[in-house]
Write a protein that binds this DNA or RNA. Structure first.
Lengths: 218, 218
DNA sequence: TAGATTGTTAATCGATTAACAATC
DNA sequence: TAGATTGTTAATCGATTAACAATC
């Protein structure tokens, strides 16, 4: 089937892959230069692609030597905006919301979760890592006060649209949606839908194939 | 820049989008048929693409009428293997692991989390939704006993490789990695890397652009 | 210098879109 | 019947790969 297509990597995915490689490289006994071939091997893509990508983000190498590790990481960080710093608010302080509020990895990418909201009066006021859970009614006030730019939707599916509307109403123009449902928002609002079913689909396809192979073999 | 490319949708993403649309459609006062135009509008893609996709997964429509909703959902479910049923185990019962164990949406996609492991002796034995947290030492036994096919890595980055190795050693051949780090596994093991930084990158790029626009306007 | 690796142009390949005949 | 919508072929567009001259 056409599933090979699904495995192709977008520019964003490639840049993130490069980052991973360079991090592991930086940790090792490595030199401070890498060639496009090394990176291409790791990322399982064509070496020309790597050179194109580097050209696109403004990284230049030197023949016979390669590309400077620090220069690449810097350029990628800059391209992805990870060097800028963003303030985010999480709506929904359930298990997933808590995990996102407390996730230590975000800082590395410049994301700072500065507020968490919940509808449930029992949760409001509780501590969650460095934050105190706020009542959803205070969303406008808190978002304006803390200069939140990114809204993270971490509520169950049926509450997601409401959460999104409250965030948009409060002035947020970028949403990260973890609820398994679509959101309807104005045109000038950017939504990134982090639906797990896409990842699950990829794995399910693989498991399916493995099963079929087994049953054919027997 | 080349970031428009990053917004292109893979087949898997499109199929998941179709599902979302059809679900909202099924809930509403809708008819039991949809046209490729309606779906294309929703998914923001070309209508020919929709027809191509349907042809690829074996769905046929009727001119003037459209495609049957149930037939589409059935075919997508089947293509993605969601109708099969998979047994999964989560390694790491922290915030993220707990969220994944208790996430109610997985069942819809045929995924059943049947075991949860943790290293921390304080967590072992605790209830987590329908499960009891098992010590990581019992992983081989439990995985063989329950017929687990999919391993979910939900530990901090530095524990991820170890968790992956234990899962692979126990016979699991598909991993879903939520740790922000790469995993080294044998060739016959499929890894799906659910790294949030890709999603974050997309949003960060958008926020960056919005900021630049603001500062230019002023 | 010789040789490895970049940078970039050209060629290929595939995916997306347009168009339209078939058909209910 | 008339008209809307499918199914599919052809045309376009863009992305990936190959190739090679420039260069350190």
């Amino acid at each position: 089937m056409a599933n090979d297509r699904a495995l192709k990597k977008t520019l964003l995915e490639r840049l993130v892959l490069y980052c991973h490689f360079l991090e592991s490289e930086a940790a090792g006994p490595a030199s401070d230069h890498v060639s496009s071939v090394e990176i291409a091997d790791y990322a399982e893509i064509d070496e020309s692609q790597v050179r194109k990508d580097f050209a696109a983000i403004g990284v230049r190498g030197t023949p016979r030597v390669g590309y400077e590790v620090n220069e690449i990481t810097g350029a990628i960080q800059e391209t992805l905006g990870f060097d800028q710093g963003y303030r985010a608010a999480v709506v929904g302080a359930g298990r997933l919301g808590s995990a996102l509020v407390c996730y230590p990895g975000f800082t590395r990418y410049g994301l700072h979760v500065v507020a968490a909201f919940d509808k449930d009066i029992n949760r409001v006021g509780q501590r969650l890592c460095a934050l105190t859970i706020e009542p959803i009614e205070r969303i406008r006030e808190v978002i304006a006060g803390k200069g939140v730019e990114l809204g993270i939707v971490a509520v169950p599916a049926r509450g997601a649209q409401d959460a999104a509307e409250r965030l948009v109403d409060a002035g947020v123009r970028a949403l990260w949606n973890f609820a398994p449902t679509g959101l309807t928002v104005p045109d000038d609002v950017k939504v990134r839908h982090e639906h797990l079913s896409i990842g699950l689909a990829e794995l399910a396809y693989h498991l399916n194939r493995a099963r079929r192979a087994r049953s054919e073999a027997s």
